[in-house]
């Protein structure tokens, strides 16, 4: 039963990756990669149960956290052109994102 679920998640991963490659705008790609990350978290959890190794769940927790941080960092990079700056009000939001 876990194998069927893992296979279904792999199929969904393939489709999400296809959307990441085909995505016309950069935000489609960010959305697809975020979705791939969440699916990977679930895949790790299911594989942990499939192979009977409960410590996989720690990896899934860390992966979920890093996935979120990664998406926010990429969004900040796309919006401001670099990640290092702090978010003053009225900074050039919107330009330089293409």
């Amino acid at each position: 039963m876990f194998a069927i679920t893992a296979f279904a998640i792999l199929v969904a991963l393939g489709i999400a990756l296809a959307r990441a490659f085909a995505g016309p705008t950069i935000f489609d790609r960010i959305l697809a990669v975020n979705s791939v990350g969440t699916k990977t978290v679930l895949l790790i959890a299911v594989l942990g149960f499939l192979t009977g190794r409960p410590e996989f769940l720690d990896i899934a927790i860390v992966y979920a956290l890093i996935n979120f941080i990664g998406v926010v960092a990429v969004l900040k990079y796309v919006k401001y052109g670099d990640v290092a700056r702090s978010d003053e009000a009225g900074s050039n939001n919107g330009e330089g994102t293409r």
């Binding site: 935000f27 960010i30 959305l31 959890a45 720690d58 927790i61 919006k79 293409r98």
Partner: peptide, 27 residues
């Protein structure tokens, strides 16, 4: 741990979806 993952996904995925939508609208 499973509950931790569920709560984590419950909070982070709407937030990242919202942030992506705002960034797209701002762009």
């Amino acid at each position: 741990k499973l509950l931790i993952i569920a709560v984590l996904l419950l909070f982070t995925s709407p937030t990242s979806g919202h942030a992506t939508a705002r960034a797209a609208l701002a762009a």
